[in-house]
């Protein structure tokens, strides 16, 4: 898929939320995420369940972070705390020094699937954020067109989401999140429901978009290869309780293409993650066996 002209903003709308330097990426020094001693506990049927245990993490502006871990390790919960959907039981989450107390447009969210408004056309879905930010209808539509062009879906503005394939729907979801010019983009297993080919295409797509957007990205996945391919840093999580056990810097130069997956460094990082996850899964499995 082709990326549209990212710099053709001459005819575009003026931004209400200003971007110094005029880049799409938002403020260059914005998007710092600080997670300090965050624990998140759930009450399920009277039993207390520690989903996240004492997480500490600092994410630099513009960094691409993958939260990697086995299913049920609390990686989505931790992300939801950054999004503001879940309040930490202890500790605090700050974005650019401001404590997170609820969802907000400066933190864009891309969900796993089925999060587009089915009754709105593709363009109206993307224009929703700008509308809510107070842009006029025409301005919002124009912003939506720009971002739809960027994900290669200019021709589908008038379609309803149900008329698009899963991969196209996710591209709309990404365009919708970006149309708010977020400082942080939170992606919760966004390609998890797609078939292998589409997923590979979407990953490449995201890598290409990255070249233009320097927004901080927190990406939740359980797919090791996906994490190594996309991330600047991989945070490996353990299951029950969810802990951050390893911070791995992915020192593979950008821009990456899928050829990179056969390179020795890629394979090495992949193996490192795989060993960690395998050890964790085994441990969690044995632990469950004991507790029953």
């Amino acid at each position: 898929m082709r990326i549209g002209n990212l710099w053709a903003f001459g005819e575009g709308p003026s931004r209400k939320k200003s971007a110094p330097g005029g880049t799409l990426a938002g403020r260059p020094e914005a998007g710092r995420v600080q997670i300090s001693d965050v624990s998140i506990e759930f009450n399920t049927n009277g039993r207390r369940n520690l989903a996240v245990d004492g997480a500490n993490l600092e994410i630099e502006p513009g960094e691409f972070i993958c939260l990697l871990g086995p299913s049920g390790c609390g990686k989505s919960t931790l992300m939801n705390a950054v999004a503001g959907f879940v309040a930490p039981t202890a500790g605090r989450v700050e974005v650019d020094g401001k404590r997170v107390r609820g969802p907000g447009p400066e933190r864009g969210m891309v969900f796993q699937q089925h999060s587009l408004f089915p009754w709105k056309s593709v363009r109206k879905n993307v224009a929703f954020g700008p509308r809510m930010a107070g842009h006029s209808r025409t301005e919002s539509d124009s912003i939506a067109r720009t971002f739809l062009g960027m994900v290669g879906l200019s021709a589908y503005g008038n379609h309803f989401p149900a008329q698009l394939s899963g991969g196209m729907q996710q591209r709309v979801g990404i365009a919708r999140a970006l149309a708010n010019y977020p400082d942080v983009l939170l992606m919760d297993e966004p390609f998890g429901a797609l078939d292998a080919q589409t997923r590979a295409m979407m990953q490449q797509n995201l890598v290409d978009l990255r070249q233009e957007f320097h927004t901080t990205i927190v990406f939740v996945t359980h797919d090791i290869e996906e994490a190594v391919f996309l991330a600047d840093r991989i945070i490996v999580m353990s299951a029950s309780p969810g802990r951050l056990i390893k911070d791995i810097r992915v020192d593979i130069p950008h821009p990456r293409t899928h050829e990179v997956v056969t390179e020795p460094r890629f394979v090495e990082l992949k193996k490192q993650c795989l060993d960690l996850i395998r050890a964790e899964t085994t441990r969690a499995f044995e632990q469950q066996g004991q507790s029953v």
């Binding site: 969210m109 969900f111 089925h114 999060s115 408004f117 009754w119 929703f128 809510m132 999140a177």
Partner: peptide, 28 residues
Amino acid sequence: PKDLVRAARALGASSTSILIHVVLPAAL
């Protein structure tokens, strides 16, 4: 759908906007 309400909130929608743009169309 809860996810749609969450999506709207993450996009900066107020409760009134959520009612008009999400809840009513979903219930239609």
